[in-house]
């Protein structure tokens, strides 16, 4: 076994590297590789991805393993699982970290099962234990509890990390590039992507956004969600929603924040006409500043937010949005 610490790059549909990758490199460099005395390495898996090695180097990767293969063009579980598992078997890293994105959730547990590793998902802190093993914290019980989990001396130790939990800090290195040399057989890829629909949106992704504006059932219609989008666009924020709003058909499921939707932890979360259920808080309770606008003074959200206005959204939001607009315009 080596004592290398790997961060596997998480790529967007357009092939660019997701921010969580840089966050993980920065945090792993400080808290994990440093303490283990191991090299911080990046891992690039995909098609035409070699070019990203320098970006990983910018955030501290001293070495970058690359598996570049046409068969890995669109994310597919089988291809990625083979690529990462084979790399792990060949180079025996101590720690393997990835983003807790739709992709990470899909193949990290499978890779762990294949290589016999222990794995945790969605860590919000990473560190090294007294036994020199990986130690993480994450949320459980609908985010009402934070267990500390310590790995047994069983290698590698794998985890995914929650986006927006760590700061990405530049620490430029000139990484050595290592060709992974992993063979993938077309017959190994059994699941075929038959259609890929991308959504054009200028708004940031929910899980990466610094600010999130969300609407609840109280918006009353799909049409009224324009109030959410307007404010979001002025603030450069992502737009979110509750399950009640999604179920009512006001907006698509990919906007759902909560236990069964996306987990977000922005600097600013504005909840409009949202009552503040346990399940919604499970997805946004770790936001730095929470603001609520709700007409019911007894709405539970007023017991767990930083700022709030008791008022009708249709009265309060238009002047609020206008004032924010002129403020931002002033700079």
């Amino acid at each position: 076994m080596s004592n290398e610490v790997w961060v596997v790059a998480d790529l967007k549909i357009d092939g660019s590297v997701r921010k969580v990758t840089f966050e993980a490199l920065s945090e792993a460099g400080n808290k994990v590789a440093g303490k283990l005395g191991g090299k911080l390495c990046g891992v690039l898996i995909g098609s035409g991805v070699s070019g990203h090695a320098a970006e990983l180097g910018k955030y501290g990767a001293e070495k970058v393993y690359v598996v570049d293969n046409d068969l890995l063009k669109d994310f597919n579980t089988e291809g990625y699982t083979i690529a990462l598992s084979e790399l792990i078997k060949k180079h025996e890293p101590a720690v393997v970290i990835g983003g807790n994105t739709v992709f990470g959730q899909d193949y990290f547990p499978r890779v762990a099962a294949r290589v016999g590793a222990g794995v945790t998902m969605d860590a919000i802190s990473i560190d090294i234990s007294e036994q020199n093993t990986l130690k993480i914290e994450r949320f459980s019980h609908s985010s009402k509890a934070i267990p500390t989990q310590v790995f047994h001396q069983n290698y590698p130790m794998m985890t995914t990390v929650r986006p927006n939990s760590f700061k990405a800090v530049e620490n430029p290195k000139d990484p050595e590039i290592v060709e992974g040399g992993v063979e993938i057989n077309p017959a190994d890829i059994k699941t075929k992507v038959i259609e890929l629909q991308t959504k054009e949106s200028d708004r940031p992704e929910l899980t990466e956004a610094e600010r999130v504006i969300s609407g609840g059932r109280g918006l009353g219609s799909e049409e009224n969600f324009k109030y959410i989008y307007q404010l979001a666009d002025i603030l450069g924020a992502a737009a979110g929603a509750t399950r009640a709003a999604v179920d009512a058909g006001y907006c698509p499921y990919d906007m759902q924040v909560g236990q069964t939707g996306k987990a977000v932890s922005p600097n600013l979360y504005i909840a409009i006409a949202i009552s503040g259920s346990v399940q919604h808080f499970a997805g946004m309770g770790s936001s730095k500043v929470i603001v609520a606008i709700n007409k019911d003074p007894d709405a539970p959200i007023f017991q767990k937010c930083d700022y709030g206005i008791v008022g009708d959204l249709f009265d309060v939001l238009p002047p609020f949005t206008e004032k924010v607009r002129s403020l931002i315009a002033e700079g």
Partner: peptide, 27 residues
């Protein structure tokens, strides 16, 4: 392979600064 060694209950102190109307709760 992974053991829980400690559990804490997250306590984020929120400011709870709520702006209300003067006659009735709603502005």
């Amino acid at each position: 392979r992974v053991k829980t060694t400690q559990i804490k209950v997250p306590e984020i102190e929120r400011k709870l600064t709520i702006i209300k109307g003067s006659d009735e709760p709603m502005v």
